[in-house]
């Protein structure tokens, strides 16, 4: 099972907590999938609102690890300050670092990401960077102190799956011992199984589950796909080939 900064998690699924039809359905999705990590955020709160406390209590009841994000931050300064506020609120040094570089694709700003990762690592954070599959960027992030990488499969919320299989495969080959998590872009369980077959350690989902007609069933479907895909990876699959090869013995065929 994956280990993030010396913490082993008994699940290959990280699940977001946003956009569910209700808190009860959110809780069902966690229960049925066995997700081990919940991603959360910080947002403005008005005096007397107390929504933060209610949400915090609900997450506490799930009994999972909490991974706060810096979602929506477009600058290094915003991301660093948001991470610091999240650390105090959630009492964890884990941070899913997002520095968004483009409004249309919500893709990471690689330059700001590396800078923020370095600042936060030096400040004692354990950084989970939301990144692209760019190998040089990922090397820079590791140099900055990241011990886990979270490349996107496709842009956030699109459900397009794994857009660059070659890039993801070469990333796995270059970092054989680093936990690699597909963060964003998955829509259906087969895509998660594919990520596992590529040797990835985990996936992070939110929209695919929360916006499904039956979020709890979809969460369980993803959990099953992760297990199936991982087993397939560990079982050392056959090599694909172009020409057909009979599986039934040729020797002894009638009429031969």
């Amino acid at each position: 099972m994956p280990k993030y900064y010396d913490t082993e998690i008994a699940s290959r699924l990280m699940l977001g907590t946003a956009q569910y039809p209700s808190p009860a359905i959110l809780a069902q999705a966690f229960r049925r999938s066995g997700a081990g990590i919940a991603t959360v955020s910080v947002r403005r709160e008005a005096g007397g609102e107390r929504a933060g406390q209610a949400f915090w209590d609900m997450i506490g009841d799930l009994g999972v690890h909490v991974l706060p994000n810096t979602a929506g931050c477009h600058s290094v300064r915003e991301a660093v300050t948001t991470a610091q506020m999240a650390r105090e609120l959630f009492d964890t040094s884990w941070i899913k670092l997002e520095v968004i570089g483009h409004a249309d694709t919500l893709q990471p700003d690689p330059f700001g990401l590396v800078e923020a990762a370095r600042i936060l690592t030096d400040d004692g954070f354990q950084v989970f960077p939301y990144c692209t599959e760019d190998l040089v960027l990922c090397e820079r992030l590791v140099e900055a102190g990241c011990r886990v990488l979270m490349p996107w499969g496709a842009p956030i919320g699109t459900g397009l799956g794994l857009n660059n299989i070659y890039g993801l495969r070469s990333l796995r080959a270059h970092f054989p011992d680093l936990p690699l998590v597909i963060d964003a872009g998955l829509g259906v369980p087969s895509q998660a199984a594919h990520a596992m077959e590529l040797g990835y350690d985990a996936v992070l989902l939110n929209t695919a589950v929360a916006k499904a007609g039956d979020p709890a069933a979809m969460a369980e479907g993803f959990a099953s796909a992760l297990e199936a895909g991982r087993l397939g990876y560990e079982a050392d699959p056959m090599e694909p080939r172009d020409m057909a090869a009979p599986s039934t013995p040729v020797l002894g065929r009638a009429f031969s």
Partner: peptide, 10 residues
Amino acid sequence: VEIVAPRQGG
């Protein structure tokens, strides 16, 4: 001044 609290996130 920014004042924030825990919220849902992805």
